[in-house]
């Protein structure tokens, strides 16, 4: 277990080279976002960056595809609620 990151504020580790999606699956925490209209849980679906179901708020930026993003040390990952928002650290 080589890389430390946070998920909704909680600290976790995962092997280097894992995507955010893979790391969440390792943790058994599959919900990546809640849909805008119905608030239903969404997760990894196509795995190749086309469907946008796996988008999360990562390091303060919304609409980032978890399946295309490799976990970096200190990465801040949050379940995205509905639509994205512009970061406060912009």
């Amino acid at each position: 277990m080589d890389v430390e990151f946070t998920l909704n504020g909680q600290s976790f580790r995962c092997p280097t080279g894992c995507t955010v999606a893979a790391a969440l699956f390792l943790l058994g925490r599959r919900t990546m976002r809640l849909s805008a209209r119905d608030g239903t849980a969404r997760s990894l679906f196509c795995g190749m960056g086309i469907c946008y179901d796996c988008v999360m708020r990562i390091d303060g930026q919304s609409n980032v595809r978890a399946c295309q993003t490799v976990v970096q040390p200190g990465m801040k990952v949050e379940v995205q609620q509905g639509e994205g928002e512009l970061g406060d650290d912009a």
């Binding site: 919304s62 509905g82 639509e83 994205g84 928002e85 512009l86």
Partner: peptide, 10 residues
């Protein structure tokens, strides 16, 4: 026109 992804009220 350029159109962004949906964002919360900005």
């Amino acid at each position: 026109i350029v159109c962004t992804h949906a964002l919360k009220k900005t």
